[in-house]
Design a protein around this nucleic acid. Structure first.
Length: 563
RNA sequence: GCGCCAGUAGCUCAGAUGGAUAGAGCAACGGACUUCUAAUCCGUAGGUCGAGGGUUCGAUUCCUUCCUGGCGCGCCA
């Protein structure tokens, strides 16, 4: 892709200049060690420290046996004018070399944004590698709650970000539809069904307590009548388990859809058993010499790969463990050709990570091919007060309720505002508030404001300039330069957020960009009498608009034209 | 007991590969709407980056010990 004008090649260009200067110093004898160390640039926190800084001189002090500032002086002398790339070079602090670039360098990004359009910020670092992101994967034994919501948005956006930087991504939902939890669901439903028919039955505490169980049972009664009373209990329970699982799963699909989350593929755990893959996985590990028998059970030697203790795959009663099917599942992922597998889990499963990483290695893959994103829990608040929740008693606030109350945009944005590995306070009142306290609207409002300017421009007969048709000299304000610089950082922000699986970086970027825009908007009018200035400003704010819309779009949040 | 994550302003949190005087929002206080949308902006105040030690030119960041909070440590799923 064309990255002319973004600051990544800018760094590269600076690097070349510095390297040349370094060689020149060695040739002249002003420096003597002869090393060509890695040259790093950083973006200083303070504007007065310029646009880029390098600590090269500090790092060379030891080898050169000279004061860092002395080394910096030699380098600056050798750097010379830099053929129009920078307009100021300064030695500062203990020996930093600060570069202040020529203003026009920064405004080039505007043309780039307009020319590339929606492609601006995207990259191909992924090289088309196949990534699978598996997320939500909630058991089909109850509706999604608020915690699932955070995992859902996280997985969804991580997948989107990977796509944006050139990976080939598949989104998958793993359905835990095997094992005794489905049996428990069937039993719960059947008992409620009998209760509906007036039978007095004990409802055990290990059954699913939620109200939704009664709803499904009542629905069955209405549709199917009393016929299950005549079936053997096993058969009835099996029927209820299947029916209930399907019903709940379809509810989950609806909830996700309403939340703007979709999966490309739904993968059934039961299917692994049906196809013999669980046994296949065990056999595969056995061939590779990873297993041993002990105390009547079959063990996987995960300690070989750093796990705390070895793990059982087949219990002494002959039943396979959850771990065994999970290994089969991940082997299946490999067999489908994914280069990278990303699992999004609740943070309470963190103890499971070393085991799964070990499994990867046991299967012959690198531990790095599995990336686990641990999503911390959500504290649901209402006006600062904790909302009580308990899965056991079935009293929990569902994702559906929250999305209906606060809206999709606010809900998604709030879930993404924190690092995934830190706990999140989610205040329903705040998320609902249509005010400046609410960061979602703050960002969306910036977008709507530009759209409003555009409407006014159109009414006044002012055309939005085309790429290359703008005189950037008309942009004289510090705020304008600051906006251009921030826009130029969008590609690297996006790339970092994607590769580190940290969607919150994009959220912070958005807030930053919106903030700078609002400041500019309040300071200066865009549409002024001078057509040259009007055009340039209109061009600039539309670049802001496009990046806002693009980033919001990646987060699955709308960018309204009017608010 | 062992392990993982966290501890940064009154509150909620950012701080990319170790950098210069640690940032933002909310809350508090004081200002700006005959103006392209005030769902906005500007200003003031607010800190022992949990504590101690170490590594180095330089540590919120890396190492180590301790303190506090959350979570996890099954032939459960």
């Amino acid at each position: 892709m064309n990255r002319e004008g973004s600051n990544i090649p800018m760094k590269d260009r600076l690097k070349q200049s510095v390297e040349a200067a370094l060689k020149k110093c060695y040739a002249e004898g002003s420096l003597s060690s002869g090393d060509i160390p890695e040259i790093e640039f950083e973006i200083p926190a303070r504007a007065e420290h310029g646009d880029f800084a390098t600590n090269l001189a500090l790092g060379m002090a030891r080898a050169e046996k000279k004061a860092p500032r002395q080394i910096a002086e030699a380098l600056v002398k050798a750097l010379g004018e830099g053929d129009g790339l920078w307009r100021k070079l300064e030695i500062a602090g203990p020996g930093f070399i600060n570069f202040t670039l020529v203003k026009s360098c920064w405004f080039k990004v505007l043309d780039q944004i307009v020319q590339e359009g929606a492609a601006f910020g995207r990259s191909s670092v992924g090289g088309g590698k196949k990534v699978q992101v598996e997320f939500v994967s909630a058991n089909p034994t109850g509706p999604l709650h608020i915690g699932h919501g955070r995992g859902a948005v996280t997985g969804d956006v991580v997948a989107t970000l990977y796509e944006a930087v050139g990976f080939d991504v598949q989104r998958e939902y793993y359905i835990n539809d095997a094992g005794n939890q489905m049996n428990t669901l069937g039993r719960s439903l059947f008992l409620r069904y009998r209760q509906c028919l007036g039978h007095s039955v004990d409802f055990p505490s290990d059954c699913y307590q939620g109200e939704y169980v009664r709803d499904i049972s009542a629905e069955v009664l209405e549709k199917e009548g009393q016929r299950f009373l005549e079936l053997p209990e096993d058969e009835a329970i099996a029927w209820f388990a299947r029916y209930g699982g399907d019903a709940i799963l379809s509810g989950i699909r609806q909830d996700l859809e309403q939340f703007g989350v979709s999966h490309d593929h739904w993968f059934s755990e039961q299917g692994l058993y049906d196809r013999g893959e669980v046994q296949g996985g065990i056999d595969f590990l056995k061939q590779r010499g990873q297993l041993y028998d002990s105390e009547g059970a079959l063990w996987f030697k995960t300690t070989r790969y750093g796990d705390d203790k070895d793990r059982v795959l087949v219990r002494s009663n002959g039943a396979t463990t959850y771990f065994a099917s999970d290994i089969a599942y991940h082997k299946d992922k490999f067999d489908r050709g994914f280069d990278l597998v990303v699992d999004v889990w609740g943070a309470d499963h963190h103890g499971y990570v070393p085991r799964m990483k070990a499994a990867f290695q046991g299967l012959g893959r690198s531990a790095e091919d599995l990336q686990v994103i641990l999503v911390q829990l959500v504290n649901l608040l209402r006006g600062g007060e904790q909302v009580a929740m308990s899965t056991r008693s079935g009293e929990f606030v569902t994702l559906r309720e929250v999305v209906e109350e606060v809206g999709r945009d606010a809900c998604r944005f709030f879930f993404l505002m924190r690092r995934t590995d830190s706990q999140l306070d989610f205040d329903l009142e705040l998320a609902k508030q249509q005010s400046s306290d609410n960061p979602v609207y703050y960002v969306q409002y910036a977008h709507a404001r530009v759209c409003s300017i555009n409407r006014n421009a159109r009414d006044a007969g002012v055309e939005l300039p085309v790429a290359g048709g703008v005189d950037f000299d008309a942009l004289e304000l510090d705020e304008e330069l600051a906006l251009a610089k921030l826009l130029s950082r969008y590609p690297e922000t996006l790339e970092g957020a994607a590769l580190q699986c940290e969607p919150h970086r994009l959220v912070f970027y958005l807030q930053d960009l919106a903030s700078r825009f609002h400041t500019y908007y309040n300071r200066e009018r865009v549409l002024v009498d001078d057509p040259r200035t009007s055009a340039a400003r209109l061009y600039l704010v539309n670049c802001v608009r496009q990046v806002l819309a693009d980033a919001l779009g990646l987060l699955g949040v709308s960018a309204p034209e009017k608010m």
